[in-house]
């Protein structure tokens, strides 16, 4: 059965830490940095659980700052 795997990249300096991506993610891939902040002082989003990503793009769809880019592969094995 084909297995879909995804990955996202986050422009951490553009991220405002609104957390909407983490809420939208159906696989709990994303979270906000608990302590680290970016250049503008935001607790930016990061990939906490990379293996769970299914490349559904939900995070990118709801991101108000277009910080997220999405990749996906379908493994036919």
């Amino acid at each position: 059965m084909a297995k879909v795997q995804g990955a996202v990249t986050i422009d951490t300096n553009r991220c405002k830490g609104c957390n909407l991506c983490a809420v939208a993610c159906p696989a709990d891939v994303l979270s906000l940095q608990p302590k680290e902040v970016n250049d503008r002082g935001y607790h930016y989003a990061y990939v906490v659980n990379p293996d769970a990503c299914i490349g559904c793009s939900s995070c990118a769809m709801v991101c108000p700052d277009a910080c997220i880019e999405v990749y996906r592969v379908v493994n036919k094995s």
């Binding site: 995804g6 990955a7 422009d11 490349g55 793009s57 990118a60 880019e69 999405v70 990749y71």
Partner: peptide, 11 residues
């Protein structure tokens, strides 16, 4: 996975 050919959403 993060390779141009796999990109499905860009800014």
């Amino acid at each position: 996975i993060i390779k141009p050919e796999n990109k499905i959403y860009s800014r």
